[in-house]
């Protein structure tokens, strides 16, 4: 291998390694950034590794993607992005094949694949673009969902929801500070719910059945909302859509457990040796509690998620 190439490879390896360790330590904030980093890394992999056929390329992407996913199984955005890229490669390949069918040669010729490569890069660019704009897209729909004088409850900290509400803010031509905000703790959710017109939450992942994997406490909010018949709107960009189901045998892999110090202080002393403290990150919210998904391509009911899935990912890629 020429020295330049080996340097490149080393550089790529290093990038992948750092990304993996960042994932492991959880130092990347927000699944949006994770997705963005995954895509840019995949683009780099595609442009820098050697491949001649589409199959080879897909194998490379798949194996690298697998490694990345293994380093943090609960971060679904990585897998989603890998699947999305695979789907794009498939589409590109199919269209390249169609375009040159007059040659009558179904084998992957070099020229065609070079073509495919060029377009691939373009396409990745559009993927990136898509994602940069998702927040605005979602925020744009705010007008349809929020009306004046509504009381809205939200939980945790979500960038998407923030944009959404800000969009509302713009629509009402209000200054940022003029949205009245009350912070309540989770035990007060039920009491407050009767006064709330709408619950808007973000999520970590949208499961294949339309359920949610959202921050801890979401389930309680969703149940309270159901009880009071308050609509629950979930803001989620398309990259959060995952082909995973929650199945009973790997419920544990579904969640992520953090250090228990948020729940109980380490200096608590003797009691710690007698008890177990669990600090899960996520809650599963079943699809029947969700009224509407607002994504960057419009609002959808949870029962429609399967349709989106088949649009976004290729069925062969569901299991990487």
């Amino acid at each position: 291998m020429p020295p330049g190439e080996s340097d490149k490879k080393e550089d790529l390896d290093e990038r992948i390694e750092t990304f993996k360790s960042e994932l492991k330590q959880g130092s990347i904030e927000g699944s949006y950034n994770v997705a963005l980093k995954t895509v840019s890394l995949l683009v780099r992999i595609i442009s820098q590794t050697k491949w001649t056929t589409a199959k080879e390329l897909m194998d490379i992407v798949r194996s690298e993607g697998k490694k990345m996913m293994a380093s943090q199984p609960s971060e679904t955005a990585v897998g989603n992005m890998v699947r999305r890229v695979l789907k794009i490669i498939r589409e590109e390949y199919a269209s390249a094949l169609k375009g040159s069918s007059e040659e009558g040669d179904p084998q992957e010729s070099l020229a065609k694949l070079l073509l495919a490569e060029g377009e691939m890069d373009d396409y990745s660019g559009t993927v990136l673009n898509l994602k940069c704009h998702f927040a605005e897209n979602i925020a744009g729909q705010a007008l349809e969902h929020i009306h004046s004088n509504e009381v809205i409850m939200t939980a945790g900290k979500s960038r998407t929801v923030e944009e959404f509400l800000k969009g509302q803010e713009l629509a009402m031509s209000l200054a940022k500070a003029d949205i009245e905000t009350t912070v309540i703790n989770d035990s007060a959710v039920f009491a407050i719910m009767s006064r709330v017109n709408k619950v808007i939450i973000g999520t970590h992942t949208v499961m294949a059945n339309g359920g949610l994997k959202a921050i801890n406490g979401s389930h309680a909010i969703a149940l309270a909302a159901k009880h009071h018949s308050v609509p629950l709107v979930v803001c989620a960009a398309m990259f959060k859509l995952s082909p995973q189901y929650l199945c009973s045998y790997d419920q544990d892999a579904f969640n992520k457990f953090l250090s228990p110090h948020d729940v109980m202080d380490f200096s608590e002393g003797e009691i710690l040796s007698k008890i177990q403290v669990h600090n899960p990150v996520f809650d599963y919210v079943p699809p029947e509690l969700v009224t509407l998904y607002v994504s960057n391509i419009g609002g959808n009911a949870p029962s429609y998620v399967y349709r989106l899935l088949s649009e976004l990912y290729h069925p062969d890629d569901h299991d990487l």
Binding site: K24, A70, F257, S259
Partner: peptide, 14 residues
Amino acid sequence: ISRWVFPLTPDSNI
């Protein structure tokens, strides 16, 4: 085992 040392937990595959 009780994950005080997160992210250096047994399942993090260090």
